[in-house]
């Protein structure tokens, strides 16, 4: 755990400018980022492609060196290798050795943490089970599907039971079930008291799991705050009810009009496509061989 402080990551005036060989400025990837991330929160970095999300994560990890500004991560400098003892990192795409199989991959990364043989074997078995790759544990990664690669990548990031986990586009390339599992896992990690930093351009993902988000655009931090606060529309009120009769609904609409407020919408809510898809899958698994009709549960 972080000693003496609840701040896990802190950046001050963090700036990264990409230069070409002659030192000429090419891109200003990140402009004066000030950020504080507290222990135990899930922080989302949000923004369109090329907004500086990945650059930020790479700077935090020491894969890139800042042009100016400071980074404190787990109380250490980003260039300090020892910080990595307690960090897990899932890169944008799982850059793994395609000639190793799942077990060998995790065993290799375990060795990099100087784990003993016993601990390593135990941890490898546990993680393979957790990400659901038991059946493919002896297959080379070159034969893996995108989703499987992503899962072994995640297992790799968790090999050292890290306190701080950085996930770069964790849901990219995953099917809705994979996305759901990933999101469940992130929430599970938060429940274990771990800090998670994730970047994404998929707004729904961020909304579902993140406590706080920072929105980056063209290298600048545009918005920062708690998700529920940011998304709350304080001038509007939503009422949801189950089994309401049409007569009762009319009465409510009448009351709203009497109150002088404007009625924006009244009717049956639609579900999200994601939810629909997940329900269909769940239904199919429960009763195989039947075509499932209707999406949302009545």
């Amino acid at each position: 755990m972080v000693s003496g402080s609840d701040i896990v990551v802190e950046t001050k005036n963090l700036t990264k400018i990409y230069r070409d060989f002659w030192g000429r400025q090419k891109v200003r990837a990140l402009k004066a980022l000030d950020l504080q991330i507290k222990r135990g929160e899930v922080f989302g970095l949000l923004g369109p492609n090329g907004s500086g999300k990945t650059t930020t994560i790479k700077l935090l990890l020491g894969l890139l060196f800042p042009t100016s500004g400071e980074i404190q991560i787990l109380g250490k400098s980003a260039s300090d290798v020892t910080k990595n003892e307690r960090i897990g990192y899932l890169p944008e795409e799982s850059y793994l050795y395609r000639f190793l199989n799942a077990e060998e991959t995790l065993d290799f990364y375990g060795r990099l943490f100087n784990m003993s043989g016993v601990v390593r074997r135990q941890r490898v078995a546990q993680l393979i089970n957790m990400v659901g790759l038991d059946a493919a544990r002896k297959r080379q990664l070159r034969e893996y599907s995108k989703g499987m690669t992503r899962r072994i990548g995640l297992a790799q990031a968790l090999i050292n039971d890290p306190d701080l986990i950085l996930l770069d586009e964790p849901t990219s390339g995953l099917d809705p079930i994979g996305t759901k599992n990933m999101k469940d896992l992130i929430i599970e990690l938060r429940n274990q008291g771990k800090t998670v930093i994730m970047s994404s351009h998929l707004l729904a993902d961020v909304q579902d799991v993140c406590d706080r988000v920072g929105i980056l655009y063209q290298g600048e931090l545009k918005e920062l705050g708690r998700v529920d606060e940011l998304l709350q529309i304080s001038t509007q009120t939503e009422i949801r009810a189950e089994g309401l009769s049409d007569g009762a609904r009319k009465k409510i609409e009448q009351i709203i009009q009497e109150d002088g407020a404007a009625l924006n919408f009244s009717g049956h809510p639609t579900t999200t496509l994601e939810e629909l898809f997940l329900n269909i899958i769940a239904e199919s698994e429960a009763r195989p061989g039947r075509r499932v009709r209707g999406g949302a549960k009545e």
Binding site: L61, G62, L63, V81, T82, N84, E85, I87, Y89, P91, E93, Y95, L96, Y97, Y109, L112, F113, N114, Q156, N160
Partner: peptide
């Protein structure tokens, strides 16, 4: 080039 180095240097490897 294949960026596999990313997963190495983000471990406590000197």
């Amino acid at each position: 080039k294949s960026k596999t180095i990313f997963t190495i240097v983000t471990k406590p490897v000197r």
